[in-house]
Computed example of a mutant assay.
Amino acid sequence: MPTPDYRVRRATSDDVPATLDMKLAAWRETYATQRPASFFTAEAARRKQQVDWWARGLAAGAELWIAEDPAGRIMGCSGAGPVQDDDADAGVRYELQMLYVLAQAYGTGLGLRLLESAIGSKPALLWVLEDNPRAQAFYRKHGFAPDGRREPLTDQWAGLHEIRMVRSAG
């Protein structure tokens, strides 16, 4: 079966609503067993607020990368930026802040294309759910390793933990 011809490009504010829909669909696919249905309902209810926040971020210079299939459907997204102050101890300056791909695009190389679009081969760090072995395996394959930091999540994510993974220079 041929691999779909995905187009990866920088998002514009016009792409934000569809990107948020894709992100919520990816969360449903990935976290359905870890989060109650009310979690997804609450996220859907915050859509307007999120659209405005993301659009303001893009207008201020934030980079968001999206991947579209040949029909123009958004199949994945990624974004990165400078590390947050509390992550400075990792010794890198760049953080992969998000990478989501819909399940139907797993195994197509789309995740790698989005990773490369967001951070290239730079040393970087990221936070990933402790209970997401698929994502952790993907990041290990691309040079990231857990560094021992583990943080509890709060609010709607309470009860889950994230681990930090770092990719050093070289």
Rank of each mutant, 00 (worst) to 15 (best):
M1W: 05
T3S: 12
P4F: 10
D5W: 04
R7V: 06
R9D: 09
R10M: 03
R10C: 03
D14K: 08
D14V: 12
D15F: 04
T19H: 10
L20T: 07
K23Y: 05
L24A: 09
R28Y: 01
E29D: 04
Y31Q: 02
A32S: 14
T33I: 09
A37C: 00
S38Q: 07
F39G: 09
F40D: 01
T41Q: 15
T41Y: 07
A42F: 08
A44F: 09
A44N: 10
A45H: 10
R46H: 09
R46F: 10
D52Q: 15
W54F: 14
W54I: 15
R56C: 08
A59S: 14
D69W: 13
P70K: 10
A71T: 14
A71C: 08
R73W: 06
M75V: 03
G76T: 00
C77W: 02
G79Y: 06
G81M: 07
G81I: 06
G81T: 11
G81S: 13
G81A: 07
P82W: 03
Q84E: 15
D85S: 05
D87A: 14
D89P: 08
D89K: 12
V92Y: 07
L96M: 09
Q97F: 13
L102V: 03
A103N: 03
A103C: 02
Q104F: 03
Q104M: 10
A105S: 11
G107C: 11
L110S: 00
G111Q: 12
G111V: 01
G111S: 09
G111E: 04
G111H: 06
L112R: 02
L112A: 00
R113W: 07
L114T: 01
L114Q: 01
L115E: 07
I119S: 02
G120I: 08
K122Y: 13
P123D: 14
P123L: 11
L126R: 06
L129P: 00
L129C: 06
D131I: 06
A135L: 05
A137L: 10
Y139S: 02
K141F: 06
D147W: 01
R149A: 11
L153T: 14
T154Q: 15
T154K: 14
T154V: 13
Q156I: 01
W157R: 10
A158R: 13
G159W: 04
L160V: 03
E162Q: 14
R164Q: 09
R164C: 04
R164P: 04
M165Y: 04
V166R: 03
R167F: 05
R167E: 04
G170S: 15
